[in-house]
């Protein structure tokens, strides 16, 4: 039963990852892609949680913590440079 739950969580996360990459590919503007990247970082935290539980390697929780912070820094950096760039006409 527990194995089934872990497999189900992996499958659901994979579906969400495919949808996130679909928006990353589709765009249509750069901020949309930044939002997709942020969701993909959250999904990676979920994958780490599943992996920690299924393998029992607890030090990987630290990786999730660092990933949460770096995803925040990436999003804020993107937003800052976008804002400095001014009005843009994307496709």
């Amino acid at each position: 039963m527990f194995d089934i739950a872990i497999i189900a969580a992996n499958v659901l996360l994979s579906i969400a990852l495919v949808l996130g990459f679909w928006r990353l590919y589709l765009g249509p503007t750069l901020p949309d892609r930044v939002v997709a990247l942020e969701l993909i970082a959250s999904l990676t935290i979920g994958y780490i949680a599943v992996y920690v539980i299924s393998s029992g390697r607890t030090p990987f929780v630290d990786v999730a913590m660092v990933l949460a912070l770096t995803a925040f820094l990436a999003a804020v950096g993107f937003a800052r440079y976008l804002e400095k760039g001014g009005h843009r006409d994307d496709d």
């Binding site: 189900a8 928006r23 959250s42 539980i53």
Partner: peptide, 21 residues
Amino acid sequence: FTGLFLVVGAAFMVVAALGLV
């Protein structure tokens, strides 16, 4: 409870990705 939290959390992730698309 662990399996419940994992599956419900992953389901919310799918909802988020659906909203994104």
